[in-house]
Measured scan of single mutants.
Amino acid sequence: AITFRFEGQEKAKKFYEKLMRQNLEATIHIHGDEVHVTVH
């Protein structure tokens, strides 16, 4: 698994949606202002 870190939720959401379109499995974790997107 690879984890990407984002400042702010907007960028993270766009990235997450892009992964979903590519049929990749990903989970999102929100830590205050920092958002972690883990790709499995």
Results as ranks from 00 to 15, higher is better:
E34K: 07
R21H: 08
V37F: 03
M20I: 14
G32L: 06
H29G: 05
K18N: 11
H40I: 11
F4Y: 14
F6L: 02
K18C: 13
F4D: 02
T27S: 10
V35F: 12
M20H: 05
I30M: 10
H29V: 13
K13A: 09
T27A: 05
R21T: 09
I30C: 03
D33C: 11
A26L: 09
G32E: 06
N23W: 07
K11P: 13
R21A: 14
R5P: 03
Q22V: 06
K11I: 11
E34N: 05
Q9K: 10
E17P: 00
T38D: 03
H36S: 09
H40G: 07
F4H: 04
M20F: 04
V39Y: 11
K14A: 14
H36P: 00
L19K: 01
N23L: 06
H29I: 11
V37Q: 00
Q22F: 12
K11A: 15
T3P: 02
K11H: 10
A12R: 00
H40W: 14
Y16Q: 03
A1H: 13
A1C: 11
Q9R: 09
T38F: 08
K18I: 11
Q22M: 15
E7N: 13
A12H: 02
Y16T: 02
I2H: 06
T27L: 06
T3Q: 04
E17M: 09
K18G: 08
E34P: 01
E10N: 05
Y16L: 11
V39L: 13
E17R: 05
Q22Y: 13
G32I: 05
D33E: 10
F6E: 01
T27C: 08
E7M: 11
A1S: 14
E25I: 15
Q22E: 10
Q9E: 14
V35D: 00
A12G: 04
M20Y: 04
M20G: 03
V39R: 03
V37S: 00
V37A: 00
D33R: 09
L24W: 10
G32S: 04
V39K: 03
K14R: 11
G8P: 01
V35H: 03
V37H: 00
R5D: 03
H36V: 12
A26M: 07
E34A: 07
F15V: 02
G8M: 10
D33Q: 09
K14G: 05
V35E: 00
Q22S: 08
A12C: 05
I28F: 07
K11N: 11
G32F: 07
K11E: 15
D33M: 10
T3Y: 05
K11V: 12
H36Y: 15
E34S: 09
K14Q: 13
L24V: 13
E10S: 06
H31N: 11
F6T: 02
K14V: 11
K14W: 10
Q22C: 05
N23K: 09
A1T: 14
K18W: 15
K13R: 13
T3L: 08
H29L: 09
I2S: 04
G32N: 07
A12E: 01
T3A: 04
K13W: 15
M20S: 05
Y16F: 11
T27H: 08
H40L: 11
F15Q: 01
R5F: 13
I30S: 06
L24S: 03
A1L: 12
F6D: 02
E7P: 09
N23D: 07
K18P: 00
